[in-house]
Computed example of a mutant assay.
Amino acid sequence: MNILITGIHGFVGSNLVKAMGGKHAVYGLDIVADSIAGVAKIYTWEDLDAKRIPHMDVIIHLAGKAHDTKNKSASQLYFDVNTGLTKRVFDYFLATEATRFVFFSSVKAAANSVGDEVLTEEVIPWPVGPYGESKIAAEKYINENFDMGADASKRVYILRPCMIHGPGNKGNLNLLYSVVRRGIPWPLGAFENRRSFTSIGNLCFVMEGLVTANVPSGIYHMGDDEALSTNELISVICESLDRKARIWHLPKRLMLGLASVGGVLRLPLNRDRLQKLTESYVVSNAKIKGALGVTKLPVSAREGLLVTLNSFKGRS
């Protein structure tokens, strides 16, 4: 099949090229026109508007404004990119003979936090902040302009992955790896949380299924089969470094007190950061596995993390 991937130069796009390039004819749509091995041609947004792109069977829309954890990005930028570009690409899809459209949304479009619950597709979306709000606005536009249950000639998928990682990944996992590599003990061992991750291997497996299998249109959450605690994550990092995990189980009251003081003195640990480090965020992948007819994804959470962490070795 002919597959068009927007934002193809990004982390996910690059990995999809490696996974799909040998099976399909892959094309790109990006602001950067640099060629990529395995990609037949990369088009510009002007090519999209001028309808200079040949027939595509599948459009995978990755391009977007990533979540700025430091909250330095202007709110409108999220809506201009995450919502605006999605409208642009989806309108193009509807006007062409392409039969499948995959929009990469985010679990943050559904909920900023889930507490002790498991996040499923049945949740009433309640995003917090411009990133999640811009993603749910894009989802709303898709749902308002396409009947997920009626149109048999086209399939539309809204994919909500939790944190994606793999070789070449940058972000919080890399930062945590750097902290542990320096031998700094993890002081929050008393907090037992559970978090879901998405390994790039599992994501590519699911994407191949959405492109080729008989999967109904709809919203699908994406994550590995197992959720891990931060303590388990620290242990996996130490396993990749071939060293013993240094996890301190300091009293929760003490850490909460230090976080309160940290907020006043503007120290690295404050209440908001403590909550983010210790809260649970478990995502169900039951719906997507059921749609693909599998009971287990090919890569376990631990295996996927080790592949990612081992790729960090040698970095400064």
Rank of each mutant, 00 (worst) to 15 (best):
M1T: 11
I3Y: 00
T6L: 06
G7H: 02
G13Y: 04
S14H: 03
K18Q: 15
K18F: 07
A19T: 06
A19D: 14
M20F: 13
G22R: 02
K23W: 10
H24F: 14
H24P: 05
V26L: 11
L29I: 02
D30V: 01
D30C: 04
V32N: 15
S35K: 15
V39N: 12
K41T: 09
I42K: 00
T44E: 10
D47A: 05
D49I: 02
D49F: 01
A50R: 14
I53N: 01
I53D: 02
P54R: 00
M56F: 02
M56S: 04
D57Y: 00
V58A: 09
H61T: 03
L62S: 02
L62W: 03
G64V: 05
K65N: 11
K65H: 14
A66T: 10
N71F: 14
S73D: 08
L77H: 02
V81A: 03
G84V: 01
G84W: 00
L85W: 02
R88P: 14
Y92P: 03
A95L: 04
E97T: 03
A98N: 02
A98I: 02
R100E: 04
F101R: 02
V107A: 05
V107L: 08
A111C: 05
L119H: 08
T120D: 15
V123E: 12
V123P: 04
I124G: 01
W126C: 13
G129H: 04
K135N: 12
E139T: 02
I142S: 07
E144W: 01
D147C: 12
G149T: 09
A150Q: 14
A150N: 14
A152P: 05
A152N: 08
V156Y: 04
V156L: 12
Y157V: 09
I158M: 15
R160K: 08
R160C: 15
P161S: 10
G166P: 08
G166Q: 07
G168L: 07
N169F: 07
N174R: 13
Y177M: 06
Y177C: 07
W186Y: 15
F191P: 05
E192T: 09
F197N: 08
G201S: 13
F205H: 07
E208L: 09
V211S: 11
V211M: 12
A213E: 15
H221G: 04
M222R: 00
M222L: 15
D224Q: 03
D225S: 05
E226G: 05
E226V: 12
V236H: 05
V236N: 06
E239G: 05
L241S: 10
D242G: 10
R243L: 12
R246F: 13
R246P: 11
W248V: 08
H249R: 14
P251Q: 03
L254S: 11
M255I: 12
L256F: 10
G263V: 00
V264R: 13
L267E: 09
P268T: 06
R273L: 12
V282M: 13
S284V: 09
S284R: 01
A286Y: 05
G290T: 01
V294G: 07
L297N: 08
L297V: 07
P298L: 10
A301M: 11
V307P: 11
S311P: 03
G314T: 07
R315W: 08
S316V: 12
